[in-house]
Lab assay of single mutants.
Amino acid sequence: MQIFVKTLTGKTITLEVEPSDTIENVKAKIQDKEGIPPDQQRLIFNGKQLEDGRTLSDYNIQKDSTLHLVLR
């Protein structure tokens, strides 16, 4: 499925993911596309910070959902 990740600069990254993917996996995909190390990434969905060990389906993230990427 496709999800979107919006950065603070207003750029939107499109990712191909599975609901069973962990947040860690998603961060690795963002690193592949953008070169941002996962330990600098914080992903936010519906105002909640997403934890590495959880999956997209844990957070009820579905296709065409938009996550927000904050760098630390």
Score class of each variant (00 low, 15 high):
M1E: 08
M1V: 12
M1I: 07
M1F: 13
M1L: 14
Q2R: 13
Q2I: 07
Q2H: 12
Q2S: 05
I3V: 11
I3Q: 00
F4D: 14
V5H: 00
V5W: 01
V5F: 09
T7R: 11
T7N: 09
T7G: 14
L8Y: 05
L8W: 03
L8E: 06
L8D: 10
L8S: 08
T9W: 02
T9V: 15
T9F: 03
G10R: 07
G10K: 04
K11T: 12
K11A: 04
K11V: 10
K11F: 06
T12E: 04
T12D: 14
I13L: 09
T14Y: 09
L15V: 15
E16D: 11
E16H: 15
E16I: 12
V17L: 10
V17N: 13
E18K: 07
E18V: 11
E18S: 15
P19R: 06
P19I: 09
P19S: 10
P19H: 13
P19N: 13
S20V: 15
S20Y: 06
S20G: 04
D21I: 07
D21H: 05
D21Y: 10
T22Y: 11
I23P: 05
I23K: 01
I23A: 06
E24D: 03
E24K: 02
E24W: 02
N25R: 13
N25Q: 03
V26I: 13
V26K: 00
K27N: 02
K27E: 02
A28F: 15
A28D: 04
A28P: 03
K29M: 05
K29Y: 08
K29A: 08
I30F: 06
I30N: 01
I30R: 00
Q31K: 06
Q31F: 06
Q31E: 13
K33W: 10
K33P: 04
K33S: 07
E34A: 11
E34P: 02
E34Y: 03
E34S: 10
G35D: 04
I36F: 13
I36D: 05
P37E: 15
P37D: 13
P38S: 14
P38G: 14
D39E: 13
D39W: 03
D39K: 15
D39V: 15
Q40E: 15
Q40W: 05
Q40N: 13
Q41T: 05
R42H: 15
R42P: 01
R42D: 12
L43W: 01
L43Q: 00
L43S: 00
L43A: 01
L43N: 00
I44W: 15
I44R: 07
I44Y: 11
F45S: 07
F45Y: 15
N46G: 07
N46W: 10
G47K: 09
K48P: 02
K48T: 15
Q49R: 14
L50M: 09
L50W: 01
L50S: 01
E51H: 15
E51S: 05
D52Y: 02
D52F: 05
G53N: 08
G53Q: 10
R54H: 10
R54D: 15
T55A: 08
T55N: 06
T55D: 09
T55P: 03
T55E: 13
T55M: 09
L56V: 08
S57F: 07
S57D: 11
D58I: 05
D58Q: 07
Y59N: 06
Y59L: 05
N60I: 09
N60G: 08
N60E: 14
N60D: 14
N60K: 06
I61V: 13
I61H: 00
I61Y: 01
Q62Y: 10
Q62N: 10
Q62T: 07
K63M: 09
K63F: 14
D64Y: 04
D64S: 08
D64L: 04
D64W: 04
S65L: 03
S65E: 05
T66K: 03
T66G: 10
T66M: 05
L67S: 01
H68K: 02
H68L: 02
H68A: 04
H68M: 03
L69T: 01
L69H: 01
L69K: 00
L69E: 01
V70P: 01
V70F: 13
L71H: 12
L71Y: 15
L71W: 03
R72Y: 08
R72M: 14
